[in-house]
């Protein structure tokens, strides 16, 4: 990455959808209605911009590792904020366990980010392509794909959650995958 030639802000912007999908992947699906991954990513990019003098890496892999780390911190903060908000609400108690699990997972993620050189992430470009393609899908298709493939929900569970029939969910998954293929093979 050439800092002189390219504005850090522009480079960072390229990873917006990647970070949103990463957050969606990490967040327990039961928290998805309570936390907006896009908001957390927006804050993350803002902080990256404000603190850009702290980034001293020399290539894009290091930059993305830095972004992931800010994101993980922000997600952790957001989840903890949720716990404070919900503390007195008895019917939200089951969410506590979910919050706890998510926090632990994010701490694990941070520990790995801290210790693993960015060179490991040779497949980052593919991940960014997938995230950008996912972002262009209709909301319902994206939601169904995320719940099915990344959170392991069954089709009837997704159907109930989205208020549609099982065959309608199968249709969303099928069309979503088809559209992703078109986009992914175009960019290959």
């Amino acid at each position: 990455m050439n800092h002189a030639a390219e504005n850090l802000e522009d480079v960072v912007e390229r990873y917006r959808q990647y970070l949103v999908m990463l957050a969606d992947r990490q967040l327990d699906s039961r928290l998805r209605g309570k936390l907006d991954a896009s908001d957390v990513v927006q804050q993350t990019l803002l902080e990256a911009h404000q603190n850009q003098e702290q980034f001293r890496g020399t290539h894009e892999g290091e930059l993305v590792a830095w972004l992931r780390k800010i994101l993980a911190h922000n997600l952790l903060d957001a989840i903890r904020g949720l716990r404070r908000e919900k503390r007195d609400v008895a019917r939200e108690q089951s969410i506590d366990a979910v919050i706890e699990t998510s926090s632990v997972r994010l701490e694990g993620w941070l520990a790995v980010e801290d210790s693993t050189p960015s060179q490991k992430f040779t497949r980052q470009e593919e991940a960014v392509q997938l995230a950008d393609a996912m972002a262009r899908l209709p909301d319902a298709q994206r939601e169904a794909l995320i719940l099915k493939n990344w959170h392991g929900w069954t089709v009837p569970e997704i159907a109930q959650h989205m208020g549609r029939s099982s065959t309608a969910i199968a249709g969303l998954l099928k069309r979503g995958l088809k559209q992703l293929r078109q986009q992914l093979t175009e960019s290959e």
């Binding site: 497949r123 997938l130 293929r181």
Partner: peptide
């Protein structure tokens, strides 16, 4: 194809 790309996201998410 989705699984292959998804794995890439998984690898970077660790």
């Amino acid at each position: 194809l989705f699984d292959r790309f998804s794995e890439a996201l998984e690898v970077t998410a660790i």
